[in-house]
Design a protein around this nucleic acid. Structure first.
Lengths: 179, 179
DNA sequence: AGCGCGATGTAGCACTCGCTACAAGGCGTC
DNA sequence: GACGCCTTGTAGCGAGTGCTACATCGCGCT
């Protein structure tokens, strides 16, 4: 019966899978527990309360996302800022990333509602992305710091527009980005 | 006791006020009813079910938002695309708009989760904004259609970053927008 | 073997959710 | 006044919420 002891480490991958599939903000203990093959009782036992569980889950998911990004992108730099935006949008548009973005907008909504754990998680994810964009900007970029911020803002705007079904707007403006 | 008959028209402003204050995605009938001075029973009676209530509320809120935008902005055009972005960010950063954006991220999260009513509402709001940006672009803009898309995407990216407490990123890239 | 303690199952609490059954109120029409 | 209908109040249903009390299981240690 595979009676392996439960722990945060064995639980988190299963919980993450469920949350990626079904969203974060209205995930409740019993469905989460079922997905992990246990009971709500045990989730509370191992994490203390739901808030702590969600915090642990966020950390785990952020690490998953970072790993996915690293493995999905070629190591080199883009030729132009615009190419950098396009490259990111193309890769993050793949189905494997869609689940993450579904989650991302749950997190943003939570941030807008004042959820501190979400704010912290979102901030560090953005720091990671900013660093990543900086590293993938053209080597001859005249101002990588400012450029990375412009590029990241453009990417996020395009992704929000994609989330509401208007990717035409986000992609339609790209040709106006200086090469 | 001011026994005015209830109707969607008398209810919607009160419901909208409650939702602007407390968020949309986890608004439930009883608090909504209390805010409107009535009972959940009557909300269902007048709107049929919660889904229809939310749809009506979205429409009402979109009209409110459009009116707020129109009255908050000066009628003229911006001098540059960058100035257009900055002008919008400055005005929508005012406290009066914060409630709307809190709601907006609830809507985006709902869109990402596949909510059709949200998708439709979000799409038409974006159409409105795109038109608005087009009308406020510099008169000599070489390609208003593309420019408006670039500007709107940049605005939305900056607003998402502001929602998660990182407005520094959104505004930090602006100086790299061609004048 | 027996003890101790962390891990787990069962059952349940008090609460909220969207929604409904039923009956009564209020008002216009004849 | 009497009828009829739109509107409203009271109460409650069945399901789901986060969380807890209590008892038991099973493993490691002596």
């Amino acid at each position: 019966m595979a009676k392996t002891r439960l722990s945060r480490e064995t639980l988190l991958p299963l919980l993450a899978a469920h949350v990626l599939e079904n969203g974060l903000n209205d995930a409740s203990l019993r469905p989460l527990a079922k997905a992990a093959g246990t009971s709500d009782r045990m989730l509370i036992y191992h994490f203390g309360n739901k808030q702590a569980l969600v915090a642990a889950l966020l950390e785990y998911l952020a690490a998953m996302f970072a790993a996915s990004l690293d493995s999905a992108f070629p190591p080199g730099r883009a030729d132009t800022r615009r190419a950098c935006v396009e490259q990111v949008l193309e890769i993050t548009g793949q189905p494997a990333f869609q689940q993450f973005f579904r989650l991302w907008w749950d997190i943003v909504a939570g941030c807008a509602a004042g959820n501190r754990a979400y704010l912290q998680a979102a901030g560090s994810i953005m720091d990671m992305l900013l660093q990543w964009v900086t590293d993938h900007l053209p080597a001859d970029d005249p101002d990588p710091q400012t450029g990375a911020r412009l590029v990241l803002t453009q990417i996020e705007g395009a992704q929000m527009l994609a989330a509401i079904g208007r990717e035409d707007i986000g992609k339609g403006g790209l040709s106006a980005l200086e090469t």
